[in-house]
């Protein structure tokens, strides 16, 4: 056997080992990159004012987020956009980009909510949602996922694909509560879709899960909602406001 053949064989072997590792191991710590695709037409389609702005060409808005997690905590935050995608003008105000910290042990969340350019802070307990588990499965970024359904309200269902191979119960935005990480999430009509593009097992950068609430006005979810309803009612329909909070 030549040395080269030996090395090749070694490489092949380690390659298999790595693939095998990905296939059959679990992750407790790491980063998931999500792509969020919002169909603005579906989201705001029945709003006559918006109809004039949203066209077939610009109806999709794509944004990227990252979710860092370990066994006890996670943070979901937007990835700063490059030039090209930020040239969407005012359209970017049609979607919210929130940063959500969750403490899985204390069942607490801390949210920096993006209110059309200004930030507001929410500290509250994590939501408990009632999930229905289905038998359908799909593979997202190399992970086998099961589909779960949450009845958001009378008219809307949220689909979530979670993989139990990622151990912590985490997900995009304020979603959690499934036995594993949510790698895909969508409204029933496909108006909003979160989809994991990359899953990586890694040590977390120090301090990334820490948040600083010092010197800030921190509300509970309900309080902020009531406040916004009072102050913004002429700008935002209550339904759209509800829709914003549903994800938290």
């Amino acid at each position: 056997m030549t040395l080269k053949a030996g090395i090749n064989r070694f490489l092949l072997f380690t390659g298999l080992l790595i693939v095998g590792n990905n296939l059959f191991s679990q992750i407790n710590t790491g980063r998931i990159i999500f792509e969020r695709k919002t169909n603005l037409k579906k989201r705001y389609g029945d709003n006559p004012r918006m109809k004039n702005f949203i066209t077939e060409e610009n109806k999709y808005r794509t944004e990227n987020f990252e979710l860092f997690f370990n066994d006890t905590s996670c943070v979901f935050r937007p990835i700063p956009e490059d030039e090209a995608s930020s040239q969407q003008g005012f359209m970017k105000f049609l979607t919210n980009k929130n940063t959500v910290y969750q403490n899985l042990n204390k069942k607490e969340k801390f949210i920096i909510i993006d209110l059309w350019g200004t930030s507001a802070y929410i500290k509250d307990t994590m939501d408990k949602r009632s999930w229905k588990i289905t038998e359908s499965t799909r593979n997202i970024s190399g992970y086998n996922c099961r589909k779960a359904i949450w009845q958001m309200n009378d008219s809307t269902q949220i689909y979530a694909w979670f993989s139990s191979d990622i151990v912590p119960s985490v997900g995009p935005e304020g979603f959690q509560g499934l036995p594993g990480a949510i790698l895909g999430m969508a409204t029933e009509d496909g108006g909003v879709i979160y989809f994991a593009k990359d899953v990586k097992q890694m040590e977390l950068p120090t301090g990334i899960l820490q948040y600083d609430a010092k010197g800030k006005d921190v509300y509970t979810e309900e309080k902020l909602k009531v406040m916004l309803k009072e102050r913004m009612s002429q700008w935002v329909k209550p339904k759209d406001l509800e829709a914003m909070f549903v994800w938290l």
């Binding site: 999930w131 588990i133 036995p179």
Partner: peptide, 20 residues
């Protein structure tokens, strides 16, 4: 270690609880 165990209600598939 760390296997996922979940209970799903037969009647309506609601996730009742899970653990590792």
């Amino acid at each position: 270690h760390q296997a996922m165990i979940m209970a799903v209600r037969v009647k309506d598939s609601v996730l009742l609880g899970f653990t590792r």
